[in-house]
């Protein structure tokens, strides 16, 4: 059973681990700097379906079948699925899992969903509520997200330099005991709002949430930033990353040598016209499962702090002039010898 290290952090004592993981990405992500890292890249944005919503649902189905295959698991081996997405009422995730016959928990943490689902899965496992496997999953689709949050795809609008590109992709991890990567600590974020209202500048809206969770994690665990080979935020993008570095410095921590951002890593902004970088639930999920976890297995990173960030607004709150409340959840990962 885990122990609380402070207001936001728990230390897990039974060594829940990441036993298996998989990533699936779209064509544009496949053409990016991490393109050859993903387990599957699909060329057709519709995934053989007729609507973007069904395409995103199919993304989840494919991700689910892929992790079962990679982990040599059958649905009966899995005690819970904890999953979420960006669409209203989390339909992609629920519709994608409706035939799985596995106890299902749907969550919404915007782009922080991957860290939120891993947090809950790890705590369920550590609390003794699952002796088997728990599946954490998150994903997003550029086209369905544009349709819901911005404008129709064919509409001729111009994106400002601070806009980010929603990642088409999904990632899943299977959490159980005996895997190669241990989940040591969970730091649950507090909602942060420093008054940013521009929905085209998500990085600036979310950076304070990242810094808040990071500083809470470091203070409550007593760890120094240099303990981690990589501190990675979810989708702050190029602008949010710069702001996060400066804010972290103001809080008295230096992360300049070991910090990166999934949104800044997944695309090449010059060649791919993605402006400030990637975003969406799929961004941190894909980069975690396609790049970070495989590199941990290889030995490139031993200790990683994964902090997925989420902007908790809706198109309605934006139109009503509200600022953007944001959140970030941290998962501390450690490669077992």
């Amino acid at each position: 059973m885990g122990t609380r290290c402070g207001r936001q952090t728990v230390a897990l004592s039974t060594k829940p681990t990441i036993y298996a993981f998989t990533s699936i990405a779209g064509k544009k992500e496949g053409e990016g700097p991490l393109g050859n890292q993903f387990d599957m890249v699909f060329e057709d944005a519709f995934l053989g379906e007729e609507t973007w919503e069904k395409a995103e649902m199919r993304l989840y189905e494919k991700c689910f079948s892929q992790i079962l295959q990679k982990g040599s698991l059958s649905p009966s081996d899995i005690d819970y699925i904890i999953s979420g997405d960006l669409l209203n009422q989390c339909t992609s995730s629920a519709f994608g899992m409706k035939d799985s016959s596995i106890p299902y928990l749907g969550i919404y943490g915007a782009c922080s969903t991957m860290a939120e689902s891993i947090s809950l899965a790890a705590m369920l496992s550590d609390g003794g509520f699952s002796a088997g496997n728990i599946l954490s999953m998150a994903g997003s689709h550029f086209c369905s997200a544009e349709k819901q949050f911005r404008a129709p795809l064919e509409y001729g609008g111009q994106r400002p330099p601070s806009a980010q590109w929603t990642v088409t992709g999904a990632g899943a991890v299977c959490i159980s005991h005996g895997g190669p990567i241990e989940i040591t600590h969970i730091t649950t974020g507090k909602i942060t709002d420093l008054g940013i209202k521009d929905a085209n500048n998500m990085g600036a809206a979310m950076a304070p949430a990242f810094v808040s969770t990071l500083t809470a994690h470091l203070k409550e665990t007593g760890r120094e930033p240099c303990f981690y080979d990589l501190i990675v935020s979810g989708d702050l993008g190029l602008i949010g990353k710069e702001i996060a570095l400066e804010l972290t410095g103001k809080e008295g921590f230096d992360i300049s040598s070991n910090y990166n951002d999934c949104g800044a890593m997944i695309f090449d902004p010059q060649k791919q016209d993605t402006h400030a970088g990637g975003s969406g639930c799929g961004c941190s999920a894909c980069v975690l499962c396609g790049y970070i976890l495989p590199e941990m297995i290889k030995g490139t990173f031993k200790n990683v702090l994964f902090i997925a960030t989420g902007a908790l607004m809706s198109p309605t709150t934006t139109q009503q002039g509200e600022s953007i409340p944001s959140i970030a959840h941290a998962v501390a990962l450690s490669k077992l010898q």
Binding site: Q158, P160, P161, S162, L194, G195, I196, N201, A204, A207, P208, I239, E242, I243, E246, L247
Partner: peptide
Amino acid sequence: YSHLADKKSPDS
């Protein structure tokens, strides 16, 4: 923070 965000965000 608003000043910092403006400073870091490039103009069109």
